[in-house]
Amino acid sequence: MRVTVNFEPEEIPGDSISVAALLKMRRYSFPLIIARIGGRLVERTDYETTFVREGDEVELYHLVSGG
């Protein structure tokens, strides 16, 4: 399926992938992420049960230390 991740088109095998699996695939460190699908925030506790599907616009932002 084709989706966009952080505004870049991306081809992902299969017709859906959980947010957790997508983060793993992209090697994002797990607890410090902001994830949105189609502009909607996905809560951390829902990463396993929320699925990205064909055409979805996904945003994944890393929170890194510094302040």
């Binding site: 607890p31 410090l32 902001i34 951390r44 890393h62 929170l63 890194v64 230390s65 510094g66 302040g67």
Partner: peptide, 27 residues
């Protein structure tokens, strides 16, 4: 400073302070 603390605060404001907007920094 700490990334985990940033995540905690963002979630807290989004979930528990529905009237508030949070402006956060990363990187």
């Amino acid at each position: 400073d700490d990334a985990a603390a940033k995540a905690m605060l963002i979630e807290t404001v989004l979930e528990r302070l529905p009237e508030a907007t949070i402006v956060a920094a990363s990187g």
